[in-house]
Amino acid sequence: MSRMLRDRRIVLVLCCVAVVCAAALLTPLPSPRSIQAWAEGAGPYFPVMFFLAHTLITIAPVPRTVFTVASGLLFGPVVGLAVAVIASTLSASAAFLLVRAAGRERVAPYLTHPAVRIVDERLRRRGWLAVGALRLIAFAPFSVVNYSCALSSIRFWPYLGATVVGILPGTAATVVLADALTGGTHPVMVGVSIICIAGGMLGLLIDQRWKPVEPIPVAARD
């Protein structure tokens, strides 16, 4: 009897999945251009609300790529880039200050992501240059870099400057490419996106090849 009940539940779940998939395929989805037109007509408060949501939500370990793509799709390359960069910068600043205020002893046990150890090692050896490289490479989640930097000895202003420089190329490329889905992107903006991607790749190459000089121990100097 229990086996028959279990089989019925499996069939019911499969039927529900089939209905959802069929609805998704048959329901007409809005085009990227119509989504952007809707955002333009949503009123002056919509960009502000999106900006606040972007800033506050990405303080938590939530991928910011979704917001970056949405910025380009909803607001175009200029406003979208401004929203994405400023919101990401404020989010990174807030995460840094909150974690540093909480203290390493309280926060460190919760940082179990595998990339944390690599990030800590790079920060120890390269300082603020590592922050810019980590933002360019983006191998570690945005929030992990924020939290790891807060737990390191790096000062706030170098961290903030390196964050802005590091996120700019990738963010600009993502926003412009997202706006290109609407079909109204100027070719110059596509060129800017390509340049930003090339800048990110160059930063990756430099980071991989650059080997910092290890400090000479005090005993060896004597």
Results as ranks from 00 to 15, higher is better:
Ala22Glu: 09
Trp157Phe: 13
Arg124Cys: 02
Pro47Met: 05
Lys211Asp: 13
Ile118Trp: 13
Met1Glu: 10
Phe51Gln: 02
Pro158Lys: 12
Pro215Ser: 03
Ile154Cys: 14
Phe75Gln: 02
Pro141Tyr: 05
Val83Tyr: 02
Leu97Cys: 14
Met201Gly: 09
Ala172Lys: 07
Thr174Phe: 05
Ser143Tyr: 15
Leu202Tyr: 07
Val190Met: 15
Ile59Leu: 09
Gly161His: 02
Tyr147Cys: 00
Glu105Ile: 11
Thr55Gly: 04
Cys196His: 01
Leu14Trp: 15
Ala130His: 05
Ile86Asp: 04
Ser93Leu: 09
Gly183Thr: 03
Asp207Lys: 11
Pro187Glu: 04
Thr185Phe: 09
Leu52Ser: 05
Thr27Cys: 09
Arg221Glu: 12
Ile137Thr: 08
Gly161Asn: 02
Val192Gly: 05
Leu136Asn: 07
Ala140Thr: 08
Val79Cys: 11
Pro28Asp: 05
Thr68Ala: 03
Phe75Trp: 04
Ala87Lys: 01
Phe46Tyr: 08
Ala24Trp: 13
Gly203Pro: 01
Ala23Tyr: 14
Leu81Arg: 08
Ala173Gln: 06
Ile35Asn: 03
His113Thr: 04
Thr182Trp: 03
Ile35Val: 08
Leu160Thr: 04
Arg209Met: 13
Ala108Met: 13
Thr182Ile: 04
Phe46Leu: 06
Thr65Tyr: 11
Arg8Glu: 08
Tyr45Gly: 06
Ala198Phe: 11
Cys149Met: 06
Thr65Glu: 06
Trp128Arg: 05
Ala180Lys: 06
Val20Ile: 10
Gly161Cys: 00
Leu26His: 08
Ala178Glu: 04
Arg9Tyr: 09
Val11Lys: 06
Thr89Met: 08
Ala138Gln: 14
Met1Ile: 15
Phe51Glu: 01
Ile154Trp: 14
Gly199Ser: 14
Ile216Tyr: 07
Val190Cys: 11
Ala70Tyr: 04
Ala24Pro: 14
Glu121Tyr: 15
His54Cys: 01
Leu202Pro: 01
Ala101His: 07
Leu97Lys: 10
Arg3Asp: 13
Pro169Lys: 10
Val78Phe: 11
Ala102Tyr: 09
Val131His: 00
Ala150Pro: 00
Ala220Ser: 11
Leu202Val: 04
Ala24Glu: 14
Ala23Ser: 13
Thr65Lys: 07
Ala130Leu: 04
Arg135Pro: 01
Ser88Val: 02
Leu168Thr: 14
Phe46Ala: 07
Asp222Asn: 13
Val69Gln: 00
Val119Gln: 02
Leu90Asp: 00
Val119Thr: 02
Ile10Leu: 06
Leu129Glu: 12
Phe51Pro: 01
Arg221Trp: 14
Phe50Pro: 00
Phe51Met: 00
Val11Trp: 05
Pro114Thr: 11
Val176Met: 13
Val145Ile: 10
Pro109Thr: 10
Phe142Arg: 07
Ala108Tyr: 15
Ala87Leu: 01
Trp210Thr: 13
Val19Asn: 08
Val83Cys: 05
Thr185Asn: 12
Arg8Thr: 15
Thr174Met: 06
Pro61His: 03
Ser153Trp: 13
Val48Asn: 02
Phe142Gln: 06
Val131Tyr: 01
Arg8Cys: 09
Leu97Val: 13
Arg155Ala: 12
Val79Tyr: 11
Val116Tyr: 00
Val116Ala: 02
Val99Leu: 03
Gly183Trp: 06
Ser153Arg: 15
Arg6Trp: 08
Leu177Val: 06
Ala94Lys: 03
Tyr45Glu: 09
Gly161Arg: 03
Gly127Ile: 08
Leu73Glu: 00
Ala178Trp: 08
Val119His: 02
Arg6Gly: 06
Leu74Arg: 12
